[in-house]
């Protein structure tokens, strides 16, 4: 058995990032020698306005403790009202979660820009703490 086989600690968070904006921001966390917990994994998509609410429910039912949408915010090159659209997706997904007996607070969204390494790390810390509080 490899030395690496030790149980994971901390909440498991699925992040939806965006190719042009928030994914480079999350890359920068690594490039800048900052860190967050390895229970955070990322699926990059072109734009946060294109995320299906059902994917968020799917993630929670598959075992993730929370889903974080690292939204494009005002920097989006696809749609000018990206934030409003993404917020609507979050709203729909939260309702879906509630219908299926999950706490809607398991979904969080914030705009992460292409150089927002530090804000991302802070969001992960805060969201992890919030998810841990839910689990009590």
């Amino acid at each position: 058995m490899p030395e690496a086989h030790i149980a994971r600690t901390g909440p498991r968070i699925l992040v939806f990032s965006t190719n042009p904006i928030s994914d480079p921001g999350i890359d920068l966390v690594g490039s800048a020698h900052m860190r967050y917990q390895p229970g955070v994994v990322t699926i990059p998509v072109p734009c946060s306005s294109g995320i299906r609410p059902s994917w968020l429910l799917h993630a929670i039912e598959a075992g993730f403790d929370g889903v974080f949408i690292a939204a494009d915010g005002g920097d989006c090159a696809f749609v000018p009202d990206c934030t409003t659209r993404t917020a609507k997706i979050v709203d729909t997904a939260q309702k879906l979660l509630t219908e299926h007996g999950h706490d809607p607070q398991r979904i969080k969204m914030a705009a992460i820009c292409s150089v927002c390494a530090e804000p991302f790390v802070n969001h992960m810390e805060k969201f992890s703490a919030a998810l841990e509080a839910l689990e009590v």
Binding site: P46, C47, S49, G50, R52, C76, F78, V79, R85
Partner: peptide
């Protein structure tokens, strides 16, 4: 199509 996917959801 610009490939943003806003139509998807």
């Amino acid at each position: 199509c610009k490939g943003g996917g806003a139509c998807v959801p």
